[in-house]
Nucleic acid binder design. Structure first.
Length: 574
RNA sequence: GUGCCCGUAGCUCAGGAGGAUAGAGCACAAGAUUCCUAAUCUUGAGGUCAUGGGUUCAAAUCCCUUCGGGCACGCCA
């Protein structure tokens, strides 16, 4: 039993007297109480009541439920109208020993619902760049959902069928010619960057001269995409991401007709003209196209075919999501870049029409702005001047190493950790996806050393040093804890509530903020012990010491579990 | 012009299914360690929550106006 359970139980009891429980809210541990509710405000709206009578009513309800009765020690109503609950020592002690048993891991029922989380899905035309930084959010979100009992699949969709793949193939081929001192292609559009040369060189090393004479494209496409995907996988591994499934656009086109048939049966497809033809791209003729009638769903009509009869990207996407549903997923989550914002509406409209009783959430991440010398940096993948994801991560890791080397009091064992990856993930997961986040490149060191990352790690390291020297049994007595420790315990009992909130809002950064709150209280308690010896974790009394250290171990495990869910290591030493 | 996101302390950002005196880190000022890791803690200063209206017992939070910034507005992907 923790605060999540307590709330749910109280909600059930209290909503009986309300016609509509939608507005019934609970406020977690605050300076007024362990748990508060706006119940009285709501009941006042329904009828004129006397506060005391409402209070008696609540007390009577609580009395009738054994668990509530045991968990709640007092209920009061303040003049301003909040109903405040205090929890009993029994609740705290039971909750604490529950946490001890579960080892910091929030326990949820197995929901066994299949969830697909698609993220990154960058076009396979080059290594990942800094703009893909926020993809770790999708990774962490998938982890949290897994923790909350869902059957989660992390997926990457590879757009290996579009025109930009032709551009990639041409770029590589052109470089391939150049390496042989032959005349390169004259391309209006091409990808630059070392990796293009690397790929071309690799083909050259294999002595594939024959491709000069016949249609080179198919071969160069296939080979180049393979190479680039390898690069992308390495980049992802570098920041701790591994997708469960990679789906190729070329492999799902067969599903497109099936998907379109479903929409057709719902009269959402028709032949027609869009009437918005630009005349400068050789598309003067306004031919009849297959259209998705988004106008029926609050959007605009969208083309499903091109004049040559082939499917548009949109049509292929519908086929792809049909395929996802075909694989049994009930909840589809997609993390897109802000530049795909205008695409969301049509995708959502089409996909949610494919099947009943599914849930779809499309989240966009706003751009991470990168500043150097006080100026914003713009990147272009085409020009090859993009700061790569890898460079960004390494630069963080290196600045940390530099600091460690120059500071003799620091234990250099920490170089065992992939600090760059960990800090990078922490930075990205610490902010809401909606925020327009600015990273100052000139202050990467500052970001490394002054950011809350180490604050949190330091708490974990301190706990590790305590726990290592003590054997921990299965039982902790509440009496052994100081008041501040009990306050911290109350916070810990909100852990599942935090996870539940992430599941509801899909906002992973709440996890870090929760952990930082925990660390803050922990550090404060630690320093109390410096002023008052009786408040230290390790004291003269053996039993007290055991109980306190055991409690600290819960805090440590929770921090570790929380960080691990986010794909970040918890450090035992700094 | 239209759509989405944002505007909270000097800076970077939390808080946002409405709720009690608006928070953190950095930067700034002053303190704390003979003893569990001072990468810590305590205290201080710093705010018209962009603006103007509306809904409500209650608005940083919800709705509308205006202003400012970001990202998009193809039969490309």
């Amino acid at each position: 039993m923790d605060f999540l359970d307590l709330e749910n139980k109280l909600k059930k009891v209290l909503s009986v007297t309300l016609t509509d429980s939608a507005g019934l809210m609970f406020f977690g541990t605050n300076k007024y109480a362990d748990l508060s509710t706006n119940f009285l405000f709501l009941i006042r709206k329904l009828r004129t009541v006397k506060d005391d009578e409402v209070l008696d009513g609540i007390r009577a309800s609580v009395e009738q439920d054994d668990e509530l009765k045991e968990s709640i020690s007092s209920i009061t109503i303040l003049k301003n109208g909040f109903v405040n609950f205090s929890v009993s020592n029994k609740f705290l002690e039971n909750g604490m020993n529950g946490l001890l048993k579960s080892g910091g891991k929030p326990i949820f029922d197995n929901k066994s619902e299949k969830v697909n989380v698609e993220f990154v899905s960058a076009n396979p035309t080059g290594p990942l760049h800094y703009g893909n930084a926020r993809s770790v959010y999708g990774d962490a979100l998938a982890n949290v959902l897994k923790l909350a009992g869902y059957d989660v699949t992390k997926e990457y969709y590879v757009n290996d069928a579009g025109n930009q793949i032709n551009v990639l193939a041409d770029s590589v081929f052109s470089k391939y010619l150049e390496l042989q001192n032959l005349k390169p292609l004259e391309l209006t559009e091409s990808y630059q960057g070392e990796y293009i040369t690397d790929i071309a060189q690799e083909i050259l090393n294999k002595d594939f001269d024959k491709w000069n004479s016949i249609d080179y494209r198919d071969y160069f496409k296939k080979f180049s995409v393979e190479c680039v995907i390898k690069l992308i996988k390495e980049d992802l591994a570098f920041i701790g991401i591994k997708h469960d499934v990679w789906v190729f656009e070329t492999s799902i086109v067969e599903f497109v007709p099936h998907a379109l048939r479903v929409l057709e049966n719902k009269h959402l497809i028709a032949k027609g003209k869009l009437g918005k033809i630009q005349s400068d791209k050789g598309l003067e003729s306004n031919e009849d196209l297959l259209l998705f009638l988004g106008s029926k769903l609050g959007d605009e009509d969208r083309a499903l075919t091109k004049p040559d009869g082939s499917y548009t990207y949109f049509a292929n996407d519908i086929g792809y999501f049909y395929n996802k549903l075909d694989r049994g997923f009930k909840w589809l989550i997609v993390i897109l870049g802000a530049d795909h914002d205008g695409y969301i509406k049509r995708l959502y409209n089409a996909v949610t029409q494919l099947k009943d009783d599914i849930r779809m959430d499309i989240k966009t991440c706003q751009v991470v702005l990168f500043q150097k010398n006080g100026e914003n940096i713009r990147f272009s993948k085409r020009l090859g001047n993009a700061l790569s994801l890898r460079e960004a991560v390494e630069s963080i890791g290196f600045s940390v190493s530099d600091f460690i080397d120059s500071n003799s009091s620091v234990n250099t064992d920490s170089t065992d950790y992939n600090t760059g990856k960990d800090i990078f993930r922490f930075m990205m997961l610490n902010k809401s996806l909606d925020t327009h986040y600015t990273v100052n490149a000139d202050k990467l060191t500052e970001f490394s050393m002054e950011n809350p990352f180490y604050y949190l790690q330091y708490a974990h390291a301190r706990i590790s040093s305590l726990v290592n020297s003590t054997d921990i049994s299965q039982q902790i007595n509440l009496d052994s804890l100081t008041d501040s420790m009990i306050e911290l315990l109350k916070l810990l009992l909100n852990w599942r509530k935090c996870i539940e909130s992430v599941v509801r809002t899909l906002e992973v950064h709440k996890v870090i903020h929760f952990l930082l709150d925990v660390a803050e209280q922990f550090h404060a308690i630690w320093n109390e012990g410096k002023i008052d010896k009786s408040k230290k974790w390790i004291v003269d009394n053996l039993q007290t010491t055991h109980d306190r250290v055991a409690f600290a171990s819960i805090v440590g495990k929770m921090i570790k579990e929380g960080l691990n869910v986010l794909g970040i290591d918890a450090y035992d030493r700094l």
